Every structure is written in structure tokens, then in C-alpha cells.
Simulated scan of single mutants.
Amino acid sequence: MTKVLISVDMEGVSGIVHPSETKPDRYDYERGRALMTADANAVIGGVLDAEPDAEVWVADAHGPFRNLLPEQLDRRARLVRGKPRPLGMLGGLDAGFDAVLFVGYHARAGSGPAVLAHTMSDAILDVRVDGRSLGEIGLNAAMAGHMGVRVALLSGDDAACAELRELVPAAVTVEVKKALGQGAAAVLHPEEAREQLRGAAGRAVARHREVAPLALRGPLDVEVDLALPHMLDLAALVPGVTRAAAGRTIAFRAADFAEAYRLVLLLVQLAGIVPG
């Protein structure tokens, strides 16, 4: 039986272009939640079209990890929601899964034009693993690959799709919008996007064995550029983390990618602390 995790972010969902649609305290958030849930349902439907007996898990992977509307989600899937939790955006994933599908993902910080591009947090300017810049797409794909799990599909804007294809050329991508800037895009009608998502999800699951997991072998040298000085002060308190020569950069060596991933997640949380 095929086991699939669908990791659903929000910035790359069909129709979404502005922070007001992605943040719980903004006026347009409820609309964004509905769009996100509908895209997730389209992908669940596509997976089960291709593999009716598949076991499908869905990880709410945006912000507070409590965005998807549980009562509106396809009842055939199991939902992972809430935080903190192991593996962050990949909550629930283990080596028993066959494939992971990235839905509503966005490009990394500094890329563009790309809709709502960032890496984990506005506090993170860049993450480099052995010199290679990785955003959420690359970090999550490599974490899945560390467990032997393939990334078979991604949906998002054209920049996000290109970012995954560079890392995992055999993956299926669905471009639901073409970025015109950080907060603007030419978007597909949501119903058209969902039709494409459903078909693509079925194709991705049917051929997931043709996709090689993204495996980055350790030890790994990691550098993280942080936005503000106090963030570097906090990060330097973590054993093994040092300030690099560049003023805004911290560095550490990880034994394997799982260690690197966990430490990046910790740095994201530390970056949210404001000194008294």
C-alpha cells in the first residue's frame, strides 16, 4: 500500500498573492484558509484516483500549522496540525512513507520575482548547506530524502516550480500562478488550478518510484544569514554554533542532514525572541 504525505503551505496556493491572505490577524485570512483547504482536497483526490488504497496524511505546514479547515478536509486523509512538533513542515513523516507532495509552496528568500518568497521566517535571509542556498523547498526535500522519501510533486508559482526542478528534475510541478513580484501574480482561476492539481497528483503518485530522493550526505557545513544583530547573539548561545566572518552569518557543522534541519528549525524559533 502506498503511503503519501501532503505538506501544504499557503503562500503558493492558487489565487494567493498578499500577506493579508496568509496571516491569522488579517482581514482576508479566512478566504486564504478556504483556498488552501480546497487545493489540499484536490491533491488528496488525485492521489486516491491513482491509488485508491493509498494511506494519505496531510501536514498543515504554514505559520501556526492550524490553517486547514479540518471539517472541510477530505475525510479520507489524516490531518497533522499544531506546533511545536518534530520535523516542522513535514510533521508526521517517517521512513515508512513512499512519497511527499509539496502543495502551495513558495520560493526561497532573495529569489524573484517570486510571490511572498522567504525562508522559514523573515528573520532568515539565507541558508547555505555546503555552499548551496536552500529555501523551504530544498530544506524539506533534503530532509525527506534523508529518510529515503521522494518529493514527487510541488505546486506554487513559476519560481517555486523551477526551484524544485533544479533539485529534483523528475518531480511533477504545477504552476498555479506566474509571479510578477513579491505581492503580485497572474493567477489561474482556482477551479482550473484544482483540476490541474488533481491530475498532476495522480500522475506524480503513479510514477513516484521514478524520482530519486534528494540525499545530501554528511558531514555538512551550514551557514545561516540572520536579519538582526540580537538574533546572532542568541544563535551563538547554541553549542556548536559560531559567528562566521560575515557580520550577519552564523555557522555550524552537522553530522548529517537531520541534525542540520533540526538546528535550522531551532534558529527560526530563537529568531522570534525579542530581548527585554
Rank of each mutant, 00 (worst) to 15 (best):
D60L: 07
R128N: 01
K178P: 10
L93Y: 05
V205Q: 00
P275N: 05
P70V: 08
P213Q: 08
A42F: 09
A141F: 00
L153N: 01
L228F: 12
A109L: 02
P64G: 09
D158C: 06
G12T: 02
V58R: 03
K178Y: 11
Q196T: 04
Q269H: 11
M1L: 12
A117N: 13
D25H: 15
P190A: 08
D25G: 05
L220Q: 02
L5F: 12
V224N: 02
A61Y: 00
V100S: 02
P84D: 07
G181D: 12
L232P: 09
E163L: 04
A227I: 06
L188C: 12
R31N: 08
R194L: 10
A185F: 06
K23Y: 13
Y105M: 03
D53G: 13
H18V: 02
G148K: 01
G202A: 15
A245K: 14
A236V: 15
T173W: 06
M89S: 13
G183W: 13
V17H: 00
D28M: 06
I273K: 05
R194Q: 08
M120Y: 10
V205F: 00
S111I: 02
L267K: 06
K23C: 04
L87D: 12
M89H: 04
R108Y: 06
D221Y: 04
R66W: 07
V211G: 02
S133Y: 02
R165Y: 02
M120I: 06
L237A: 11
L226R: 07
F65W: 15
L270I: 05
R217T: 11
V274F: 09
L79R: 09
A271T: 04
T173G: 10
A144I: 05
L154Y: 02
L116E: 07
V274Y: 11
V43T: 10
I273Q: 08
Y29M: 05
E166N: 09
G82Y: 10
